[in-house]
Amino acid sequence: MSDFEEIINTRRSIRQYADKEVSDEDILKILKAGMQAPGSRLGAEPWEFVVIKNKDTLMKLAEIKPRVKTAPVAILLVANIDRAFYKAHWQQDMSAACENMLLEAVNLGLGGLWNGVAPTEETMAKVAELFDLDNETHVPFSIVTIGYPAEGWENKFMDKFDEERIHYEKY
C-alpha cells in the first residue's frame, strides 16, 4: 500500500483529542493543503480560514458545535462568495478544501473532524455572529478540529468498501 493509500484508508473522524498542542508549523501545512484543493475555476477559489486556538473562543464555539470542546485547535472554513466563480457551487469547492485538510492532518500524525456548519441556517448564523462574519458574502462552511487523537480514537483502517454501491452505465 502506498503512503497516500494508507492516509486515505486510515483517516477517521476523531472526536476526542489528547491534551497536547499542535505546532504552528503543522497548522500551516494543513492550511496549505486546503488551499491546494481543486476549485471551480483557478484563481476563483472561495476559501478563507480562521484559526482558533484561544481556549475561551473554543469553548464559545463548543456551545454551537460541541465536538470542538476537546480540540486544541479549530479551523473555521469561510466561503468568500464574492470570490467564488460559480456562486451556486461554492460548497463543492469548500468541501474539497476541507477533505484536503483532513488528509494532511493524518499525514502529520494528527487527527481531525469535519464539523458541518452549512447549510443549516441557524448554525451558520450563530457561527457568523461569533466571528463577526456578514453571512452573506463571508459564509461559514465548516469547522475542522485538529489535534492528537485521544486514546481509543486513533486513525485506523476500517474497510468501508461495498461492491453493491457500484453501478455501471446506469443505476
Rank of each mutant, 00 (worst) to 15 (best):
S2T: 14
F4C: 05
F4R: 13
E5K: 15
I7R: 10
I8Y: 08
N9V: 06
T10G: 02
R12A: 09
S13L: 04
R15M: 09
R15E: 04
D19C: 03
K20C: 01
E21F: 00
E21K: 15
E25W: 01
E25R: 14
E25Q: 14
D26T: 02
I27E: 00
I27R: 00
L31G: 00
L31I: 15
L31W: 03
A33C: 10
G34H: 01
M35T: 03
M35H: 06
Q36R: 15
Q36F: 12
Q36K: 14
A37P: 04
P38N: 14
G39S: 15
G39A: 14
S40I: 09
L42W: 03
L42R: 13
G43D: 04
G43N: 03
G43S: 12
E45D: 04
W47I: 09
W47K: 03
W47N: 01
E48L: 13
F49A: 06
F49R: 05
V50K: 02
V50H: 00
I52M: 09
K53C: 04
N54T: 03
K55S: 07
K55D: 04
D56F: 09
T57Y: 06
T57N: 06
L58W: 05
L58K: 08
M59E: 13
K60E: 14
K60S: 06
L61R: 04
E63T: 14
K65P: 01
K65Y: 04
P66I: 08
R67N: 09
K69L: 11
K69V: 02
P72C: 00
I75T: 11
I75M: 02
A79P: 02
N80F: 08
N80Q: 08
I81M: 11
D82E: 15
F85S: 14
F85T: 08
Y86R: 13
A88T: 07
W90C: 09
M94Q: 07
S95Y: 08
S95L: 13
A97S: 13
C98E: 05
N100M: 07
M101C: 07
L102C: 04
L102M: 15
L103C: 03
E104S: 10
A105H: 02
N107R: 15
N107S: 11
G109Y: 01
G109Q: 02
G109E: 05
G112N: 05
N115F: 02
V117Q: 01
A118Y: 14
P119G: 10
P119C: 10
E121I: 13
E122W: 05
E122K: 12
T123H: 08
A125N: 11
A125K: 09
A125G: 03
K126M: 11
K126F: 02
L130H: 03
L130E: 07
F131H: 07
D132C: 11
D132Q: 13
D134I: 11
N135E: 06
N135A: 13
H138K: 14
F141I: 07
F141G: 00
F141K: 03
F141Q: 06
F141C: 05
S142P: 05
S142A: 15
T145G: 07
T145P: 12
T145V: 12
I146S: 00
G147Y: 01
G147L: 05
Y148E: 02
A150F: 08
E154D: 12
N155Y: 06
N155D: 06
D159L: 07
F161N: 15
F161Q: 10
E163V: 15
E163M: 09
R165C: 12
R165A: 11
Y168Q: 10
E169V: 14
E169K: 14
K170E: 13
K170H: 12
